[in-house]
Write a protein that binds this DNA or RNA. Structure first.
Lengths: 364, 364
DNA sequence: AAAATTTAGCAACAGCGTTGCGTAATAGAG
DNA sequence: CTCTATTACGCAACGCTGTTGCTAAATTTT
């Protein structure tokens, strides 16, 4: 991993992203808010605000009278100033969302995908769906790109699908490249779970610490947010959390090992014992906490959302039991606030992040 | 986690750190090497090299004749220009090392610690050991600080030992503060495993991708290097890898759960079955790979080093079996090249990192 | 000896946040 | 009403970064 040089443009993007982060988190903000949140000098904040205003990303919306002194100008993000489209590619469905600069899902639509669909069929479905969305909304000139979240394995850096689980026509498909050509828009390709955790990080803002998204949807996966960024691993293959062994003498899994979290969970489901299934997931989550020490755990996925309260209760209880010995070990457990849109919305936010988020210093 | 502002001093520190990284990795380097490795312009590299030379951190050491054209000046890091002391605090021993700017261990000494030692006893042992080292080596004015790697739980950001496993006198001890006062040097406090993985990252340089250090030494812990930095987790408590469940129906562990990696491993050891113990660790390592997708796994720790080849073989085999399905999933498994010095040396490197490593943008 | 090639630095420049200071807008005191 | 204290905020100059344009030096090749 060769690091890239940092020049003054990095500073510009970085501090600009800090201010945008404040704007997304707090609906309205003034200069002093930003000064406190970022540590920038008031003068620097003025300059950044001037730049962002000129680009139409934020706007003045009134004044606040603090009692004595000149009233402070109140700013707000302009949600309609930029949009991105997010796609969640699952085995049989394509979910498309339109997300604005504030992170709000403005449109959401699901369409079926042909069984064992080909790359061309996906491209056609994407193009048709995007046309439908841009036709019904006025996003002219403000669409920044398309984010695609899908099952792996894939190579995020090169936009390459190495081979999607359960799909035959997806071996070493350069999806990003052909999608950009087909759609005429910048495309970002990532694993579904990584897109999902990005959405959570966006919604929570700068206060979002290390976190994981547990996704239960025809398999169990994990998306990670560590040190202020998505963690993808050395080969964009992080998150195969369902294939960690929790029962050395357990049943054989499709991956060849015995007692994977996923197969143990599945057996409980097939036995009709949702409570036990939820407790199995809880064991896996506590394993994650022991290993990574997370501040947040977010639960998501279609199968999980069939019994959200059962899973939430089991995981919460296990996490609290684990931390009971000490007062300082606090971890929040929540359901994803975006529901079924989580992955698609996160994929869209990854596009917006490319322009208005913290610039990367270490590419690849 | 409030991010801090980035100003031009960040650029200076960042690009300087890139050049220092090249200097540590390649023993000798010239301007064109740095240009290629960092992406900086030749002129920028000249400026950075001028600054570093003025500080005595690097020096010209000759010329290379590339065939045609003006010969290139060859530079090298000046190892003796800066030193740091590293301390590895275990339950019954204190290991102190002197590390130079190149990352070489120049002195190493182990002294016993009293059973159930107190903070004051540790401070005295530290002071005595440091005096012995500085007495026998000429490090006057070039000692940058003391790094302490010890068992947790602790609070890295505030330099606070919350309570060390198995030690009674260590509850909420502000070790960094009192050690800085007692020793008159800057002190960095971190978990042993985090210090250990930092040492590996230093030795491997910029090419070191996501990695873990597995430490087996009266317990099983893990140190993580993710996204170009040490991963400590939300409460500096990451790495309790030994307390992840791998056998749902396994024996009860001291932590209250059943079938933790650590207790299953310990049972195998007690049964005299080292091979089985090693395979248990291998299962844990593969679990990590599935979750985090690592490029390197480094094995370390006193107990592991009693049977290094057995562990290395078992883990290597399990990792290769896991990756056999695909060609692109490559993970290197190695023993720590620093042996028993790994933790102490890493703690020292954390001090050097503070001055000459990549500056942090997101403190706390 | 002249040309080609490679290395390296000087000087001017653009862009960033910072500092110093002046100005605008308000509330409250006299 | 007038004056003062207070708060908000921007202009201008500055220091620092890496970048660009160009010149000079050192060596091999022709």
């Amino acid at each position: 991993m060769t690091r890239i040089t940092a020049d003054v443009r990095f500073l510009r993007g970085y501090n600009q992203a800090l201010v945008m982060g404040v704007g997304r988190t707090a609906r309205r903000f003034e200069r002093s808010t930003v000064v406190q949140a970022t540590g920038l000098t008031p003068q620097a904040v003025s300059k950044v605000i001037a730049r962002l205003s000129a680009d139409g990303l934020i706007r003045a919306t009134g004044v606040r009278r603090p009692g004595v002194g000149k009233p402070a100008v109140v700013y707000e993000l302009v949600p309609d100033s930029r949009y991105a489209i997010g796609a969640h590619v699952a085995r049989r469905t394509l979910r498309l969302v339109l997300v604005d600069l504030a992170g709000t899902v403005r449109h959401s639509a699901v369409s079926p995908l042909p069984g064992d669909f080909t790359p061309q069929q996906l491209l056609d479905a994407l193009a048709a769906g995007i046309t439908a969305i841009t036709g019904s909304s006025d996003v002219s000139g403000r669409l920044t790109g398309v984010g695609i979240g899908m099952i792996g394995p894939l190579d995020h850096a090169h936009g390459l699908v190495r081979g999607a689980h359960g799909l035959r026509h997806w071996h070493d498909v350069p999806l990003r490249e052909i999608a950009e050509k087909h759609l005429g828009l910048p495309v970002h390709l990532d694993k579904d779970v990584t897109a999902g955790i990005t959405a959570e990080a966006w919604r929570h803002g700068a206060t979002f610490g290390d976190a994981a998204l547990i996704m239960i949807e025809s398999g169990i996966g994990g998306g990670f947010w560590l040190g202020g960024a998505a963690h993808r691993g050395a080969h964009t293959n992080a998150g195969e959390f369902g294939h960690t062994v929790v029962d050395l003498n357990g049943p054989r899994c499709v991956c060849g090992r015995h007692g994977c979290l996923e197969i143990v969970h599945q057996h409980a489901i097939e036995a009709g014992d949702i409570d036990r299934a939820a407790r199995v997931v809880a064991v896996g989550v506590v394993n994650l906490l022991q290993t990574l020490d997370l501040a947040h755990v977010v639960l998501a996925g279609a199968d999980l959302l069939r019994h959200p309260d059962t899973y939430l209760a089991a995981v919460t209880e296990a996490v609290q039991a684990d931390a009971r010995r000490v007062h300082w070990l606090t971890t929040k457990v929540t359901l994803s606030g975006l529901g079924a849109d989580a992955i698609a919305a996160g994929a869209a936010m990854q596009i917006l992040d490319r322009h208005y988020g913290i610039p990367e210093l270490a590419p690849t």
